[in-house]
Write a protein that binds this DNA or RNA. Structure first.
Length: 723
DNA sequence: TAGCTTGTATTTTTT
DNA sequence: ATACAAGCTA
């Protein structure tokens, strides 16, 4: 096995795999075989060192990365891989908290609040404190609370450090916010990490248990850790000190959300005995591309020295193009995409376009649409944040946990049951006085034990309580998808939508159906993995799985369409041909980021990330003028262009390609692809010209003669595909 | 309560 | 320009 494991590795990678005792920092440059090294290392621990798999923990940032690593480890070590914990930070903490959280005063069946929930909770808190949301923007408050939690600051600590009135108010809101979370038996995303740390700090014996459980710790993307995550890892590693941090300070692009570059830069201070291993050989890009990337990064101060090199060929020069405006910029991209396809024989899915902000995607989209080039936009829409989906999930959450007042209030009168503000206020008031949960007070109200409530409202309350009670009775006995179906029907939610009789309602109904499918998939997966019998603990697990997923986990790269995405979403991917557009001062680097040196450096790292995605063809594009917020601006050339040695660049002319139509490539959107003929109930026959999103999000743009372009959700639109 | 008007911001994103 | 949210009228 040793030979097998080590044969495909270079010197540095081999060292990284071998060095399993004590702290190790693996500085893994872009395209240096990081995941390979990490997975081999885990295999080495199991096979060569005979470490029991349950002593190994690997932490990633995204579900996607976790799944990928699990699969690759599984391929190396087989079934025992299932005993290795490979999860995101949040998932690891949830698993720990599910066992231990009673020590913190929450119940084990806590729910996880997402950003939408958080926002309504903050608004509630502001109301409770009689604060003007104009003056104290919920968004800002929420951001500050999140920052505080990332820094492991409790409300009390925030109060103590307050420097002005705003800080004092903030501390108050934060305090109320935490109290409300506790009352609702809920945790937000940041809490998952922070509460686990607090748990460890408060209960040394619990920490001790997990330290012994996870003797071999791996943290991927270490440069993206925030302070709370850093402390979490440090605590876990403190006893056995076998921590393997993997990361690349050059690819730290999430400072704006709390990632602290110092975590990786100071690793050797935290662990003086640490071995530092640099993976600098790149297997992805041409020499030209790597030189450009290295040169750009020389303009950043205070990062670890690292220079990528490769045995790959020189490759073609980097193309630089200066467009008139953003439309011409997009036209250039379109023309070059055609050329790459024709002359370089690239598939469309081998080509990607990166931009700094989402707003830039529109013009690109319009032009590609016009040019009949299939494209696919990564990111954007969110299935789980849609109102109807959140409503149904709120029902399930209340069924699972009646103390979840936020969810309860969300659905108590949806569909309408005649329970208005007045009734609700009365019951809430009663609950407060009697120190009851809102749900228990509702039960009393239904039984007529709370005065001042009209008979009609009481009936509404009664029907609501009955519904929840019914569902609670069966929740452990039936599969989750049946439960969802039951909520849809018995709550009257579907009936309400059916009555509306609008396209929008139809779309909402389809989304709810989609949620049933999600639940069904989930249930089937549970059966396969043998995690539980039908329904058994399924609801809780289901709610958790939807709370921790994100759409971005499935960037579909095999889709036969040009991929359009922000530079941030590009991290971790690679393409034979890459376009980076909008290379102008104020766009990229972004105007908001040029005042502060640290932010500018993050922009530069973002540029580095973009460039190092390219295997062979790299295009850097700027527009002479562009329309921004409604007026024309003339931005200078991005400094990043200036930082690339001239001899690596070749300024190109616009290659006007005769528009050739007829791309016949598969696309991901619900089985539709550009070029398909479809029939629509209302608009008749049309041609698919673009796709966007996946799964329940999938959207297609269709050209209907005489009607124009229409954007349709595949899952809901009354569409039929014509052979 | 829906639909309208008015105001305001407008990087990047995961869980 | 535009999108989205909050406030206001029918």
């Amino acid at each position: 096995m040793t030979g097998k494991i080590l044969s495909g590795l270079n010197e540095a990678q081999r060292e990284a795999v071998h060095t399993v005792e004590g702290p190790v920092l693996i500085l893994a440059g872009a395209g240096s075989g990081k995941t390979r090294t990490l997975t081999y290392r885990i295999a080495y621990l199991v096979y060569e060192k005979g470490i029991p798999p349950y002593h190994i923990l690997a932490i990633t940032f995204t579900n996607k990365a976790a799944v990928e690593m699990k699969e690759r480890v599984h391929r190396l070590v087989g079934g025992v891989a299932n005993q290795i914990w490979i999860h995101t930070f949040h998932a690891v903490c949830v698993r720990i908290l599910r066992r231990e959280i009673p020590h913190l005063g929450y119940r084990r069946d806590f729910v996880i609040y997402d950003t939408v929930d958080q926002s309504s909770l903050v608004k509630d808190c502001l109301k409770e404190l009689n604060l003007d949301p104009q003056r104290y923007a919920p968004k800002g408050i929420l951001a500050a609370i999140s920052r505080a939690k990332n820094e492991l600051m409790t409300p009390r600590m925030v109060a103590k450090r307050a420097e002005d009135l705003y800080d004092e108010i903030l501390a108050r809101v934060y305090q109320v916010y935490q109290r409300r979370l506790l009352e609702n038996n809920a945790l937000d995303f940041d809490d998952l990490i922070m509460q686990t740390v607090l748990l460890f700090r408060k209960n040394p014996e619990i920490l001790d248990y997990y330290q012994d459980r996870f003797r071999y710790l791996h943290i991927d993307e270490y440069q993206d850790t925030n302070h709370a995550q850093y402390v979490f890892a440090r605590l876990l590693a403190a006893k056995h000190r076998n921590i393997c941090a993997v990361g690349d300070d050059f690819q730290s692009i999430y400072g704006f959300r709390g990632a602290d570059l110092r975590n990786i830069l100071d690793f050797e201070k935290d662990y003086p005995e640490a071995r530092v291993i640099k993976l600098e050989q790149n297997y992805r890009s041409t020499k030209t591309i790597l030189t450009a990337a290295n040169e750009i990064m020389k303009h950043n101060q205070g990062q670890k020295f690292k220079e990528l090199w490769t045995e790959n060929e020189e490759g073609p020069p980097i193309s630089y193009y200066e467009a008139e405006d953003e439309v011409e910029e997009a036209e250039f991209v379109a023309a070059e995409v055609r050329r790459l396809k024709r002359e370089e024989k690239l598939a469309l899915s081998e080509i990607a376009v990166f931009y700094r902000t989402h707003a830039q995607s529109r013009v690109l989209e319009e032009v590609l649409l016009r040019e009949r080039i299939p494209y696919h936009i990564v990111g954007g829409l969110k299935f789980y944040e849609r109102k109807e989906v959140k409503d149904i999930l709120a029902y399930l959450r209340v069924v699972h946990n009646p103390a979840d007042t936020l969810s309860l209030e969300r659905i108590i009168n949806t569909p309408r049951r005649g329970i208005g503000i007045r009734t609700l206020t009365r019951v809430k008031e009663y609950a407060r006085r009697q120190a009851l949960d809102l749900y228990d007070a509702l039960k009393l109200a239904a039984a007529g034990q709370i005065g001042q409530i009209k008979e009609k409202s009481r009936q509404g309350v009664r029907s609501f309580v009955t519904l929840i009670e019914q569902l609670r009775e069966i929740k452990d006995a039936c599969p989750v998808d049946d439960l969802v179906r039951m909520v849809n029907e018995k709550s009257g939610y579907l009936a309400m939508l059916r009555k509306e009789n609008t396209y929008e309602a139809l779309s909402r109904m389809e989304n709810i159906q989609e949620l049933v499918s999600v639940a069904k998939d989930f249930e089937e997966r549970q059966q396969v993995t043998g995690a539980a019998g039908p329904g058994e603990g399924g609801l809780e697990a289901f709610l958790e799985s939807v709370a921790l997923v994100s759409e971005a986990d499935n960037v579909d790269t095999g889709a036969g369409a040009v991929l359009l995405m922000t530079l941030h979403s590009a991290k971790g991917l690679e393409f034979p041909a890459v376009f980076i557009v909008g290379l102008e001062e104020g766009v990229f680097p972004h105007r908001e980021a040029v005042f502060e040196a640290s932010e500018l450096e993050e922009e530069r790292r973002l540029c580095y990330v973009g460039i190092t995605r390219a295997k062979r063809h790299l295009y850097l594009v700027r527009a002479f003028q562009r329309t921004l917020y409604g007026n024309t601006v003339y931005n200078g050339i991005s400094r990043f262009i200036e930082e690339i040695p001239r001899e690596l660049l070749r300024e190109v002319e616009r290659g006007d390609e005769a528009a050739v139509s007829g791309f016949q490539t598969p696309a991901p959107a619900g089985g539709f692809k550009a070029g398909d003929r479809v029939s629509h109930k209302v608009w008749g026959v049309g041609t698919v010209v673009g796709t966007r999103g996946i799964g329940p999000e999938a959207e297609i743009t269709v050209a209907f003669p005489g009607v124009g372009l229409k954007r349709l959700l595949v899952s809901i639109a009354p569409l039929e595909k014509l052979q």
